[in-house]
Nucleic acid binder design. Structure first.
Length: 424
DNA sequence: TCTGGGGTCCTAGGACCC
DNA sequence: TCTGGGGTCCTAGGACCC
């Protein structure tokens, strides 16, 4: 059997843990730049605030219902996520962390254990230890476990744990489950399926396999098999990322290249950091910039450029250099830019080392510099040590006016470092 | 008049997820 | 005035190989 644990309204719940006055109050968390709603407490959902709604359209409802509004604080959410996952892993070792707020479990060798009892214990212990409410679904396939977790969340009588372990339960659950809520069925396929009078997950399973295959390809066929009880997706081991992207919308529109260069340098540096963290090197790097697509009355420009790196690297100074060269090639004056980003692909493991006959760079020296920089930044805070081109400007910085404190990771807590651990 | 068969790799775009 | 960020996989078509 597979399990799927989903943290309820995760970001909103994280904010609430450290602010008990928010209990039973409507909460929304906004995307970067305080753009649109990306998380809502149940109370906010009840007010009819939709997911993805731009914040400026919600001014009225926020004021009239006293909705608590937060900028997103990924430092806090990331740390809370780790705590949740750590507790869960003490119960079930076979787990796949699927996202910041979801984890798949595999119950293998649990044949003589009451999974409902175990599930309740996991949910209760984790919520008690972190303050985050959870829902757990258990079923023979990952897709069905997802379905079960939605029931666990929706109906309080389940006390957070719902199990689909018989044909009768599977049939009943799928008949009550809208096709567009199935894992793997997005907006496009849902529309196609509705057109063919497939409205519930059950309707979908009653279609023939070949019909599904011709409409949705092999991906849809797998979903069909999973809903019918045949597992197609295993627990996946977490590997290194195959692409890494850092991109942001700017707090204000930028017309000059200088602040954009600074932003792009920071994005490249951040990609380098992520690469080093997973012990990988990248062979290519892409830079993109674009204007504000919502400003339909202004002229639009979107461009990107792929840069091949001579030798796979995770050195921020090198990534910054190529990102900057790329930006110069695609930047055109006369536009108001809203967003830029750096995407890194062709990622390979750090070892074995690949060399280039004509490479003249002293890679050992730069690697040491990166190590020292990472370790200082880990101790003293992000970007405390940086490459000069990353700059100190604030022009491109995003808006986050409603940011909560990093309760669990703020510097006063982690500044207690052993001097011997600083490598110089 | 009549012109094969079997591959690989790359890219762009589309679909999905959180 | 104001609209997020970061991923994965699959497919079709083109270019190329022998």
């Amino acid at each position: 059997m597979y399990g799927l644990i989903d943290c309820n309204n995760f970001y909103a719940s994280c904010e609430r843990v450290f602010n008990p006055l928010l209990a039973r109050k409507p909460i929304v968390v906004l995307s970067n730049n305080d753009g649109c709603v990306i998380a809502r407490s149940n109370e906010a959902k009840a007010l009819g605030i939709p997911m993805g709604e731009p914040a400026f359209k919600l001014k009225e409802v926020i004021e009239s219902h006293n909705v608590a509004v937060f900028s997103s604080n990924y430092t806090l959410y990331g740390d809370m996520s780790q705590r949740v996952m750590t507790i869960i892993s003490s119960f079930v070792p076979d787990m796949e962390i699927y996202s910041i707020d979801e984890v798949f479990l595999k119950f293998e060798g649990y044949e003589n254990i009451d999974l409902r009892e175990l599930g309740l214990k996991i949910v209760r212990t984790t919520t008690k230890g972190t303050g985050i409410p959870l829902s757990l679904g258990i079923a023979p396939t990952k897709t069905l476990a997802k379905v079960a977790s939605k029931f666990a969340k929706k109906y309080p009588d389940y006390k957070g744990v719902c199990i689909i372990d018989s044909e009768i339960k599977r049939e009943k659950a799928l008949q009550l489950f809208a096709i567009e809520d199935v894992w793997g069925i997005g907006r496009r396929y849902a529309k196609k399926l509705h057109y063919h009078s497939v409205n519930t997950a059950w309707d979908f399973t009653q279609k023939s396999k070949s019909w599904v295959r011709s409409l949705m390809g092999v991906v849809g066929e797998r979903t069909w098999m999973e809903l019918n009880g045949t597992p197609c997706f295993r627990l996946e081991v977490q590997g290194a990322k195959k692409s890494i992207c850092t991109s942001r919308s700017f707090g204000e529109q930028l017309t000059e290249i200088n602040p954009i260069s600074e932003a792009v340098a920071n994005f490249a540096a951040s990609c380098g950091e992520k690469l080093r963290k997973q012990h990988s090197l990248a062979h290519s790097l892409m830079v993109f910039i674009h204007t504000n697509p919502y400003a339909t009355n202004k002229s639009q420009y979107y461009n990107q450029i792929l840069m091949q790196l001579p030798v796979p690297t995770n050195d921020s100074t090198e990534l910054i250099k190529y990102a900057g060269q790329g930006l110069k090639k695609i930047f055109l004056p006369g536009f108001s830019y809203k967003k830029a980003g750096v995407i890194i692909t062709e990622i390979v493991p750090e070892r074995p080392v690949q060399t280039n006959l004509f490479d003249e760079r002293n890679r050992e020296k730069y690697n040491t510099a990166m190590k020292v920089m990472d370790s200082l930044n880990a101790s003293y805070g992000n970007r405390k040590v940086r490459i000069a081109t990353q700059g100190f400007g604030r022009k491109w910085k995003l808006k986050n006016e409603k940011l909560s404190p990093c309760y669990t990771t703020r510097l006063s807590d982690i500044l207690v470092v052993n001097a011997n651990e600083i490598p110089f």
